[in-house]
Every structure is written in C-alpha cells, then in structure tokens.
Amino acid sequence: MKVDNSSRTAIPAPPPRQAGTWLILGGLLVLIVASFASLPLQWSAFFSREAIDSASEFLAGFAPPDTAPAFLAKTLVAFWETLAMSAIGTILAALVAMPLALAGAGRMGRAPRALTRLVLNVLRSIPELVWAAVLLVLAGLGPLAGTLALAAHTAGVLGRLFADALENIEPHAEQSLRTNGVRPLAAFLYATLPQALPQMLSYTLYRWENNIRAAAVLGVVGAGGLGQMLKYHLSLFQMPSAATVVIAMLVLVALVDAASYALRRALMR
C-alpha cells in the first residue's frame, strides 16, 4: 500500500537563535563559574570527621522534644500567633497592592505608572527583617511589628505581580464595552478584573505560604510567634524545647501549604 506523502504537513524548522540569546547564556555561564571560583567553599572541612561529629552531637541534643502540657499550650498560642501574623499581613498587603497595581499597570497615566513602579520596587527590595527592625522602634516588641513588616514587603511583591497580570490581559473586551458607552470603571470591573482575578488570588495564596516562613523568622528580632520562642530557647541552649518549636513550625508550614494548594486547585477549575 502506498502512502501519499504529499498530504503530510511539513514541520517547520525551529527559528535560529539570535546572537543576543547566546551572549546572555554565555554571560550566565561566566557568572556561575566566577561565583564558584570567588567563594571560599571549604567542602573538605564541611565533610570532615570532626564537623560530622559536632553536628551529630548538636542534633542529638534536640531529642526528645519537650512535651510538657504547659509548654505545649504555650507553643500552641505562639502557633496561632504566627498563623495570624501571616494571614493578616497577607490580607493587608493585598488590599494595599490592588490600588497600587492599577496605577502600576498604567491605568492612570504614564507618570503615575513610573512612580508607582518605583514605590513597589522599594517596598519589595527591603527584606522583612529590615522592615521589622524599623517597625519595632515604632510599635515595640510583639506581633504588630511583624505583621506590618510582612504587609509592607508583600505589598511590593503583590503590587508588581498584580500590575503585570492586569497588563497581560487582552484589552479587547474592555474596549468593546467602552465603545458601546459603558463607563471605564464598570468596563474594568466586568471585563478585565474577572480575567485577572484567579491569577491574583493564586499569587496571594502563594505569598501567604511564603509569609508563614517569614513570620517564623521575624520572631528572631522580637516580632512574636514561634520564631521568638525559638530564639529564646536556643539562646538558653534548651534544645528539647527548641525541638518542639521547630516541629510546630514544620506542622504549620505543611498545613498552610496543603490549604493553599487545595484553594488554588479550586480556583483553577
């Protein structure tokens, strides 16, 4: 039986790579090699017998974890405090990021777009620990400073992501409504925002996952929660108590990761 080769669709050849692409790849390769060459990575000392024995002795001090009822109750309070810090910080950040994203997406003109992008760059370039150190001076020790630090940094991240999501939406639907006499705000709410909202919610949930870990770290500078407990017990070399706090952190991160994954799956259906 003969096969009619004329009916087969020819597969187009892949486009040739531009010179700029090869230059970027070459620059990245040089950067990686230079990074390894410039850092004093002492792998032999890291895997030496003395280092392994010291690490084993240190880790053995964490067992068994402290399971006293009074300490578990205290850990549960810090567990909830860390969860609340991350949730409130993420919500505040999303509320601040939305209007900033509108300006950052150029919906209010070019000048506001450039200024807003600069503000978002500043907010997300400053780490949460630095925000917490500054806000601790204003709000004092406790979860308020940690919550505001998470909100400040996350607002910069979400504002940039929200603005990019709005800019990537096809404008035809909104333009069609406005051409037919619909007001700009109503056209945005009915045409553009519904397309970008699932992606925005996904970004917000992902940042909530990150803020759980950040909230635990912020306690190291006195911002409350599990991190503050961990710093306290490690500084006193109370390793069993520190082990309980670490386990609580792992459980909290696992629960939030699972909840966030389930919510994102539901949003994508």
Results as ranks from 00 to 15, higher is better:
residue 63 A to P: 00
residue 258 A to V: 04
residue 100 L to H: 01
residue 259 A to W: 05
residue 101 A to L: 09
residue 139 A to Y: 13
residue 196 A to P: 01
residue 56 S to G: 10
residue 124 R to L: 08
residue 80 W to I: 08
residue 116 T to W: 07
residue 111 A to C: 00
residue 120 L to G: 04
residue 210 N to C: 15
residue 105 A to D: 02
residue 19 A to F: 12
residue 244 T to K: 06
residue 21 T to K: 03
residue 218 L to S: 06
residue 80 W to E: 09
residue 102 L to H: 07
residue 265 R to D: 01
residue 174 E to T: 02
residue 69 P to G: 10
residue 242 A to M: 12
residue 104 G to Y: 05
residue 177 L to H: 05
residue 116 T to L: 04
residue 99 P to K: 11
residue 62 F to V: 14
residue 124 R to C: 06
residue 180 N to I: 01
residue 50 E to H: 09
residue 84 A to C: 08
residue 262 A to S: 15
residue 225 G to C: 11
residue 205 L to W: 06
residue 234 L to Y: 01
residue 131 W to H: 10
residue 206 Y to L: 14
residue 40 P to V: 07
residue 96 V to H: 00
residue 225 G to T: 08
residue 258 A to R: 14
residue 231 K to A: 13
residue 73 A to D: 00
residue 87 A to D: 02
residue 110 R to H: 08
residue 23 L to K: 11
residue 157 V to P: 01
residue 183 R to V: 03
residue 139 A to D: 01
residue 32 I to C: 05
residue 102 L to C: 13
residue 195 Q to E: 15
residue 60 A to G: 07
residue 175 Q to F: 07
residue 101 A to W: 06
residue 5 N to I: 03
residue 185 L to P: 01
residue 173 A to R: 09
residue 80 W to T: 09
residue 15 P to S: 13
residue 69 P to A: 15
residue 58 F to P: 03
residue 143 P to S: 10
residue 13 A to K: 12
residue 33 V to R: 05
residue 36 F to I: 11
residue 208 W to A: 08
residue 16 P to N: 04
residue 97 A to C: 03
residue 170 E to Q: 14
residue 197 L to I: 05
residue 13 A to I: 02
residue 67 T to I: 09
residue 1 M to Q: 05
residue 105 A to L: 10
residue 136 L to M: 07
residue 233 H to G: 00
residue 83 L to I: 11
